[in-house]
Design a protein around this nucleic acid. Structure first.
Lengths: 141, 141, 141, 141
DNA sequence: GTGGTCTAGACCACA
DNA sequence: GTGGTCTAGACCACA
């Protein structure tokens, strides 16, 4: 599984990890029974302190998304996919609403905001999605 | 001028004040030479600790958006409108980009995200005082 | 509120704090709206690292027993007393069952165990309760 | 000899094994000169990692309860029965005292605690193989 | 190798 | 003053 951490951006690192794990489970990239990357490995990979990773994993356990297998690691719970699919949209929408509210309150018009969203989505899509010559493909599941 | 503070939402309170002052100046709600509301007044109005307001105002001085008039308060700088108009879009776009990137990385499709944006903009438009010559535009999809 | 931490004894320090806070709330020693002792104060009082206290307080927040009042501290939730009264007996019974099972499995007879319990309760009562000339008083609420 | 391991319950697995071996020796189930079950056998029987068993056995050697007979295994020491009878009560009493202290400190009354103990002993007695000349005694209050 | 707990100490936002 | 986050590093139990 692939993480992308932005140390800035207002979201705590441990929370970014929590969210991205949930998203990966929602997508099916990470399935029930599968082990999370180990604290030490992820710590190295992301150049982030192990305690911060552990904090994220603690949260994921509290959220009943993963469970500890003693000495082996943390495994995705059976019920996690359903739960994560349910929360993914909410997690995004909450942040989105916060920004949109600020934009409107700041005097940007809805049309203007939608235009910015469109532009940014385009410029980001190259980075995130595999480039597709068939524009319909990215939107199909 | 009117503030709207969201204690949640990941943006520090002092930063919300900084941003909203800049937005007000960008819009012209607050013009060069005009005084910011006093720390005490704003503190009472928003039910927020004076230190937090003071910190925001300190930041605005550092950004050369306002300047201290000894004994009278903080006044909007002459060059502020231009500067604030320039940064408004950027300030919003940065936050927006961060959320959109998370959404895409989290597996939401661009079309899905635009749909969420449209829905949220509609539901928020009612809340925010939007002055529109065409009242139908903000709420239409 | 008064804590008594046993660094040995198999229960993690942070968990001892979690349990004792819940017990204090169950007893009414700590009421809704009251602030917990601050992390730093308790850290000094118990000679325990602040992070360990913070870990306990994080757990108490996750359990919805306390809530954070920004910059002021952690306050007991409105619903906490009811919840804590409900869990107190369970928390104790679980540990108790574990020891009793070991004792029985280890060949002690039930009568023998009850005798040990009686003796220990007597020797501990002096330490914990205020000494009462009226033996019935300690058992009355 | 028969082990019963509770992976929860706060006592380390290796320590549960150490204690149960001592209890078996105290009871006479395991006599001087008798061999402990081999690490591999016990590991399979309990579905526990061999390293954990080995660690328990190392502890038992350090406590001079068993000694290594080169190539044959670990045998109960001559002095072990006496030693184990002496510690059994203490091992139980220590854990018991810890829980009872927590219960009292948590505001439960001695009578209440004794009642819980009585109830739990009854419900556990059915589970544990109690050999009693008077079958009614263990289950009677 | 795995996670869990604890210590030590820094910096930030808020009151 | 308050808690929240993060880094750094030790030690433990278990596989």
């Amino acid at each position: 599984m692939f993480f992308s951490i932005d140390p800035q951006g207002g979201v705590a690192i441990y929370d970014q990890i929590v969210r991205q794990v949930k998203f990966a489970i929602a997508e099916g990239t990470l399935g029930p029974g599968q082990l999370l990357p180990s604290v030490r490995m992820l710590s190295q990979q992301l150049a982030i302190n192990p305690n911060t990773i552990a904090r994220a994993y603690l949260q994921l356990q509290a959220d009943e998304v993963v469970e500890s297998l003693r000495g082996r690691g943390l495994a995705v719970c059976a019920g996690a996919p359903q739960q994560c699919r349910a929360v993914r949209r909410t997690l995004i929408t909450q942040r989105l609403r916060s920004v949109l509210a600020e934009a409107l309150h700041g005097g940007l018009k809805a049309a203007e905001i939608r235009e910015i969203v469109r532009t940014e989505l385009e410029s980001l899509s190259g980075t995130v999605n595999t480039i597709s010559s068939n524009p319909g493909e990215a939107a199909s599941s």
